[in-house]
Design a protein around this nucleic acid. Structure first.
Lengths: 198, 198
DNA sequence: TCAAAAAACTAACAAAAATTAAGATTTTTT
DNA sequence: AAAAAATCTTAATTTTTGTTAGTTTTTTGA
């Protein structure tokens, strides 16, 4: 009888969630069927339900675990005694490294949250709005002390977040520069683009 | 009997394609059903098939009409007698204005192309690859003549294209800056971020 | 005005989807 | 080694999906 093989410290549910992340990234949440998932896990579709409640549970577990991680990191960075621009750079670097090292989960969380259902959906949209506002506030602080050029803060946030999500293309590309180089390049363009002209 | 109402110069098929764009953006291609589409057009689902061949036809018509427009514009800009950085700025501005003025179509083309089926899928992926290479070549030229800072060109392309797709958030936001301001802000960050330090 | 073409409707199909029920088998615990 | 718990399977159910067939209604143009 086929059995889900777990590595140390991982529950069978963890394995399923992780495979789901890959599948949701590849095909999108709606196009990925429970049968696809079962196959990739190596078991019959019905067997999955011994470990999870529903397909949608998979999505919201993925989405919220990623979202929580970013919120926690922002809490941490916000309280550090460094300048706004330095905070933005740290946040940017964190986004980049998460996107590189936890590609599947972050990508799914970014692109597939639309398919959450309430109350998760409104909840997520709320978290997202608050997160962006906090970033914008950081930028506005930088503008106030003339460290950052006078510019619309929400627009900066939007550029930052979406630029990072472009790392998707980097993942797919064959001739890759290294992760460090990628990070360095992104910081060079985006942070330099923010700096006030002195 | 319900009838699809057309405005001047628009075929009934055009109306369907346009409504499909909105629907595909809102729910995603897979989650949008032909019955949803029929309702939004104001007709029974089966009636749609007097005008279109299939659901997938809707997607590839949308995707390729957008893709072609961008390729044509790139042809045009490439042949102008201006510097590489100026060309990049023009392309960036074109992307921004297309995203603002043809939001639904551009967004769908950007996010839902995964659901194309062959031969359209490989075709599209090819076009996309070529397009990005042309942009990268433009940037490399700018680097060579020291107009643009030494930086990985494909990374720049990736940041540019994805930053533009972030205009999605602008569309959704309630307190909007004007389209002109948005464009100005994006150009300020991204083009400034490229300039070689003199 | 009348025939042909275009566009709509109702009804139905087949395929695929998520999920459940009931029972068999394996693993863990005592 | 027996009992309990966990895990997997087969089979079935219910919904939803894209699409087709056949027919009726509306529009067009000679």
């Amino acid at each position: 009888m086929a059995r889900i093989k777990t590595e140390k410290n991982l529950s069978r549910k963890d394995v399923i969630v992780s495979k789901a992340a890959t599948l949701f990234r590849e095909k999108g949440y709606k196009a990925a069927s429970m049968r696809d998932l079962a196959e990739s896990v190596g078991v019959e579709a019905a067997s999955l339900y011994n470990h999870i409640k529903s397909k949608s549970e998979l999505l919201h577990e993925l989405v919220f675990s990623v979202a929580n991680k970013f919120v926690l990191k922002l809490d941490e960075i916000e309280s550090e005694p460094i300048s706004s621009l330095q905070k933005m750079e740290k946040i940017l670097r964190f986004h980049i490294s998460e996107m590189i090292n936890h590609y599947e989960e972050v990508y799914v969380s970014d692109r597939e949250w639309k398919h959450l259902s309430d109350p998760y959906l409104s909840n997520y949209q709320n978290q997202r709005r608050v997160y962006r506002k906090r970033l914008a506030a950081l930028i506005e602080e930088g503008i106030r002390i003339k460290e950052i050029k006078a510019i619309d803060a929400p627009t900066v946030v939007l550029i930052f977040l979406h630029a990072v999500s472009g790392i998707e293309s980097w993942h797919r590309s064959t001739k890759k520069i290294t992760a460090e180089e990628l990070e360095q390049n992104m910081v060079a363009i985006l942070i330099d683009g923010l700096k006030a002209n002195k």
